[in-house]
């Protein structure tokens, strides 16, 4: 089999495993949507809040399906020795990782679309004004958060502590990055921190693409920040990769 076919086989296996793991499916799909419905019910019919919330939840979903999922999965695969087994087979490692990452990428895209569709159907948020920008921000966000998730997994000592480590990053990140409310209302210090981190910029990009119609050119700076984090993430992910 060619490396490409092997990547496809791995991707299909990962899809199968994903659907067989109820808690992974829950955290990736159900939780963000439940939060969306819950917070939206608090905002009621305040359209401006809803137009903040939809891009916010979409951005959070990108992080949850890639950063969180990579950190969880890799820690598990490493602790179980599954990574080590893979390394002893002739499967080219790029094929393996393409299939493995492809699974997370698929989840991220599906989730962003779901949020956008629900936002339109339930809350009258417009259809995205710039689809290209939406897809591009999703793609760059996925690469950045996926790579950062892999890099972060190197810090996690064992699978039992994964939830604590992941949430220590994820919860503050969604809190300060304007997922549920505009981050302009945050204290200056926190807003400054959020400006440095990638999630806020993904959300800004989504907000532009969906609500205000600002495309890639307008949000080039935001895209650059996310891409920068992606480059750093890839560097760290590869440099410190541990098989066992």
């Amino acid at each position: 089999m060619t490396p490409l076919t092997l990547a496809w086989q791995q991707f299909r296996l990962e899809r199968k495993l994903f659907w067989r793991n109820p808690s992974a499916a829950f955290f990736s799909f159900v939780l963000p949507l439940a939060l969306l419905l819950l917070v939206a019910s608090v905002f009621g019919s305040d359209q401006q809040e809803l137009e903040t919330l939809i891009p916010g939840i979409a951005g959070m979903s990108v992080m949850a399906t890639t950063f969180n999922a990579m950190a969880y999965n890799l820690t598990f695969l490493r602790e179980q020795g599954i990574l080590k087994r893979v390394r002893g087979t002739p499967v080219p490692l790029p094929s393996y990782f393409a299939g493995f990452l492809g699974n997370a990428v698929a989840n991220a895209f599906v989730q962003v679309l779901l949020v956008v569709v629900l936002g339109n159907l339930l809350y009258d948020v417009t259809w995205p004004r710039d689809w290209a920008a939406l897809l591009l921000f999703t793609a760059v966000g996925v690469v950045a958060f996926g790579a950062l998730g892999i890099a972060f997994s190197h810090v996690i000592p064992n699978f039992d502590s994964t939830a604590a480590y992941v949430n220590a990053v994820f919860l503050p990140a969604i809190f300060i990055s304007g997922v549920f409310y505009s981050s302009d209302s945050l204290p200056r210090v926190l807003d400054t921190v959020a400006e440095v981190l990638p999630l806020k910029h993904v959300i800004d990009g989504f907000s532009g693409a969906i609500v205000t119609g600002q495309g890639v050119v307008d949000n080039a700076a935001a895209l650059a920040v996310v891409a920068g984090w992606g480059a750093l993430g890839l560097l760290l992910a590869v440099r410190f990769f541990r098989w066992e």
Partner: peptide
């Protein structure tokens, strides 16, 4: 890769995908 295709490995301890 050519060598890995000709070798089979049973490690001292090694896991599986639990849901397969």
């Amino acid at each position: 890769r050519e060598l890995q295709q000709r070798v089979g490995i049973v490690l001292q301890s090694c896991g599986f995908y639990p849901r397969l």
